[in-house]
Computed example of a mutant assay.
Amino acid sequence: MRKRIPLNAIRAFEATARNSSVVKAADELCVTPTAVSHQIRQLEEFLQVRLFIRKNSRIELTTEARANVHRIGRGLDLINDAILALEASDYDERRRLTVSASTSVATFWLIPILSEFTRQSEEVDVTIKTFLTRKEAEEQESDLRIVNWLSQLDCHSEPLLEEEIIPVCSPELAARFGNDSRTILQSAPLAHVDRATGGMDGTYPDWARYLADFGISRKGVAHGSRFNQAGTAMEAASAGLGVILGRSLLIADALEKGRLVPVADPYHIRSPYYLNASWKQMESEPLVQFRTWITEKVRSKELARVA
């Protein structure tokens, strides 16, 4: 068990010893010289040791005090460093936000727009975590998740947006088939994204489902290149390898830059996305700022699309 020590008195002693002056120590500690002298007497009584000797107008450390004053100074420095570290840790915790999203959503949608949030909320440090599966997503520690399923976790959940599935390919491939939607869907090579088949919540169509629903008859629908990641499939489509069922959230930039072009109507069922927020962090300022920003961002995009 540690001995109960008078820390204020020790601080007064160390400051006086370091400054060789009661007056300077009092100025440093923002107290009166009388208070410093009182604290030093209190410490001497506690230790039953004399700490200073007065010589005319000067004070000098006793032999015992001189032998230990540097160790006391180092001890106070350690305490000060520990307090600063605790303050920094608490500050970091209050300004940090962890956001989880699938690898493809984070790469092709969130990160390209994230600089807008960091510019308007410079005090918030955002950590992005990515996942490939629902299990991985729900096992991650995160303040906010962007997901396309209804979670069974105990969290606040709210709709964010709806994603469309749109057949897209490179402009060159579309031109080879006369830029005609029906001809492209009947004859152009198809590329498949295995991970997206069925979707996280069953709403993503595969090519067989899409073509059947649009009344397109085609042999060998399962034939063609296959990919297990949407991003890889998008690069392949941009290179002219085939037509993919592109996810509107991921292909927006490629469409805008002309690397991909839509070749037919979107699928009639949209896939919803949700914001799942930790109850513990719901009222934290970083999370409130991010939720407000991202919902307004999505709403402005939706309004622009409708217009």
Rank of each mutant, 00 (worst) to 15 (best):
F290V: 02
M200Q: 04
T130K: 01
L161Q: 04
K55S: 09
I5R: 14
S187A: 07
E116S: 03
E302Q: 12
L161D: 06
W279N: 14
E14S: 06
I83D: 12
T16E: 14
P33F: 07
L250W: 07
D194H: 03
I111K: 11
R247E: 02
S271L: 00
E45V: 11
A17I: 05
G224T: 02
A12E: 05
R54C: 06
Q229D: 15
C169K: 02
V126F: 13
F177H: 10
A212W: 10
D201K: 07
T34I: 06
S170K: 00
E138M: 02
P266E: 00
S20R: 15
A15D: 06
A106M: 10
A307N: 10
E93W: 07
R74D: 15
L250N: 02
K297I: 08
S217Q: 08
R176E: 14
H223F: 09
L7E: 13
E44H: 07
D253T: 05
K257C: 08
V69P: 13
G199I: 05
D180T: 04
A35M: 14
L97P: 03
P266R: 00
L84N: 11
N228Q: 14
R218A: 11
A26D: 03
E235C: 00
R247N: 02
H223L: 13
L245K: 00
A304P: 09
R71C: 14
E44T: 04
R299D: 06
A175M: 07
T203M: 11
R218C: 12
A212V: 10
R71N: 15
A137K: 00
I40E: 00
K297Y: 15
H268F: 11
S271D: 04
A82H: 12
V298H: 04
E164R: 07
E235S: 03
V243Y: 04
A212C: 08
W279E: 13
D81E: 13
E44Y: 10
V147S: 04
R96W: 10
K301P: 03
E235G: 01
Q186V: 00
K24W: 05
L173T: 04
E302F: 06
L190G: 13
P266D: 00
A26V: 06
Y204K: 02
F108T: 00
P33S: 09
M234W: 07
A35S: 15
Y267A: 02
I294Q: 05
F117T: 07
G220C: 05
V105P: 01
G224M: 01
S100R: 02
Q120L: 15
A101T: 01
E45P: 04
P272L: 03
V243I: 09
E141C: 12
L132D: 14
G231N: 11
A137T: 07
A65S: 11
I166D: 03
I79F: 13
L7Q: 09
T203S: 15
G73M: 04
D194Y: 03
N8G: 12
V105K: 00
L260W: 04
V306A: 12
I244A: 06
R226W: 15
L250C: 01
G198R: 09
E28I: 04
H38D: 11
R145V: 06
C155A: 12
K55H: 14
R259W: 05
R2N: 14
D180K: 00
L275E: 09
G224C: 02
D213Q: 05
L161I: 08
M1G: 15
P262R: 02
L76C: 12
L173F: 06
I83N: 05
H156C: 08
N56K: 15
D77N: 10
L144F: 09
D90W: 09
K219T: 05
V298L: 05
